[in-house]
Design a protein around this nucleic acid. Structure first.
Lengths: 145, 145
DNA sequence: CACCATCGTTTACATTTGTAAACATAAATG
DNA sequence: CATTTATGTTTACAAATGTAAACGATGGTG
């Protein structure tokens, strides 16, 4: 997530989740919903909304005197991006076990699972025996070799 | 990652990767290795190492006049933790497709894949048809229902 | 119409993070 | 031994982030 050189922060993300889910929302709706979960003052939420607008994650449209906030990015790509970014910072060797763990602890639908099974059988055909560490910039690998 | 109320930052994480991979390292080794990848001054790296020590991610042992830095946390659990944290912030509905994408774009070993296949067949037996959104704190769900 | 409730805007301020210079000290070297 | 070099310590400072009060405008209410 890099728009204007700034990223979305955790706090901002929580607000986006609400807005993504509702499609759009007024500040009061957002404030009410987030306050069921987070102990943030009204002011805090307003500041965060403001920042989301200036970071171009949200758009506002006037509805009388109030604003309706609408996402300028879709949730799925945003989710994809932050995760890919995280994964880029993780040692290649760790990713397999990590994904395994995530598969275990995540609730998946039958369709999700089927799709994954398909991908995995395919990947198996060309899968290496071992994945090598890529943490050292000089390409050397001390963890695995 | 929450030790002493502070987390590990991206910059710090990059250093940890090097130290995890080498098992332990002196500051000069770390500086040399990171500078192959990042344009950070020596001072910057020293500051980051310092912070990692104070955040209790690293430990130092004297070796003559220099320090040897050793991790105080293992890589696998650390990786696990930051990822779980991220996943906790993502809508339940998005996780399946997200994991699918990650599976696709990640290099996995044969053993990784086999383990995943095992987990998936098991999960399939009790998998729901659909996973519901959990973004709204009041439990309502507008995205999926 | 005066006042209160809403909602947006501005300003504020401490902490964290990125980025690094300056300084101190000890070891190596000419 | 004087000087350079390596290494750790202290101090610095701007930008990002969390957190929120103060202020301003405007529509609803008694």
């Amino acid at each position: 997530m890099d728009v204007n050189g700034t990223e979305m922060t955790s706090a901002e993300w929580e607000l986006m989740r609400i807005i993504w889910t509702k499609g759009q929302a007024s500040s009061s709706e957002i404030i009410n919903l987030i306050q069921l979960k987070k102990d943030w003052s009204e002011s805090t939420v307003k500041t965060l909304l403001h920042r989301l607008v200036s970071k171009q994650y949200l758009q506002t449209t006037k509805d009388g005197r109030r604003f309706i906030y609408t996402p300028l990015i879709d949730e799925a790509p945003a989710v994809q991006q932050i995760t890919s970014e995280l994964f880029r910072q993780i040692c290649a060797m760790e990713k397999g076990p990590l994904l395994l763990k995530l598969l275990e602890e995540t609730t998946l639908s039958q369709a999700d699972i089927a799709a994954m099974q398909a991908v995995l059988s395919l990947k198996l055909q060309t899968a290496p025996l071992k994945v090598h560490c890529d943490c050292l910039p000089d390409g050397s690998c001390n963890k695995c070799c």
